[in-house]
Amino acid sequence: MSVHSDNRGQSGLDSGEATDVRDLHAAILRERPDPIEGREPLNLWVVAFIAALLFWAGTYLTQYSGGFRSDEFAERQINPAPAPVAAGGGAEDPVSKAVKEGAIVFATSCSPCHQADGNGVSGQFPPLAASEWVLAEGPNRIARIVLNGLSGPIQVKGSEYNNAMNAFRDSLDDRQIANVLTYIRNSWGNKASLVTPAEVGAIRGGTSDRSQAWTVADLEKVPVSGGAAPAGAPALTPAALKEALKKLSPDELKSVLQDVGK
């Protein structure tokens, strides 16, 4: 191709670059024999940037994917803090299994008030760690608290609280309540027996006519353990039942019998 650039350069209106230089440039670009020369390697910064992005992607994916479960909607609850339960050796003993699942319920339903470390907020939300209510022999009272809530004065670990806790009867099912109770009974140094869904179910059924929150006065009428749990559940060996019944005052005994009669 022949270039008569002088003809065109006369215009006096070129955009700042001499025409012949540009044409020369074009020719060079087009005819350069060895394309290797023109291959600018990818800028190292670009490569580093992409590598950093990929690294971030991997981290984010593993941290915020709810364990890739189809039933996990809250990305942040993945890998719940390893349950501080004594690993008894067996891969999945019922307690640690319940604790694991209960941890998730606890994080969404209870920790806003009782705090993740179970210590509550002094003066407002009583602690669950080392609470005598939580560590009671059976789940009778705490299951009622979770089902219907609690209001009025209560003594926990020697301090007085007078506040209100909401009911979870409609928002948590038996399994979730049993798991979360097992969790609070076996975390932060607590150690107490497993709570089964059947126990919770029985208590739910037995208290279905109660609509207001519990008060300490009402709760104290409920035996600490045994009672409403169905036959066959671990808490209800005849011996344990006898033991429990012996502890009751005549009045309490009467109310238990009435409950059972329903």
């Binding site: 670009v46 992005l53 984010y60 994917s65 479960r69 189809s70 996990e72 990305e75």
Partner: peptide, 24 residues
């Protein structure tokens, strides 16, 4: 929304990866 968390996380990661085409 009520989507399994991982699906949304995957799409967030892919969205951030769009930095590659966008910056280039």
């Amino acid at each position: 929304g009520p989507m399994p968390a991982w699906m949304i996380t995957v799409s967030i990661v892919a969205s951030v990866m769009m930095l590659i085409p966008v910056t280039t």
